[in-house]
Amino acid sequence: MTEPPVTLRQSVEAWERAIAAYWDEVSRSPEFLTRAGQQLSASLRSRQRIERMLHAAALNLALAYQQGERQRLLLEHLQARLDDLSARLDRLEQHLGDGGAHG
């Protein structure tokens, strides 16, 4: 009597049982768990460091922006004063010119 053919399902199920048992053994072993735990902790600490760096960079950026904005406002203020002075000079010159013509 010949053996019935082994189906793909039977083969995969047998293989899955074997790999699952292997994985269960590995994933419970202190060596594996210690390394996995250390790697997770290291990743989390790296993330904390990156977040702190990004936070500091964002803060510096905000400060630089604030400083730039202050300088821009100062320049605008100076420009306005210069424009004002220039207008006053124009009016003075005009006045003096008009006075000369009348005198």
Binding site: D24, L33, A36, G37, L40, L44, R45, Q48
Partner: peptide
């Protein structure tokens, strides 16, 4: 159960996980 093993304090730093994420 596997979660009982994976969450043991010698492997999982719960405070670090929550404080970070």
């Amino acid at each position: 159960g596997i979660y009982s093993v994976w969450t043991r304090p010698e492997y999982l730093d719960v405070d670090l996980l929550v404080d970070t994420l």
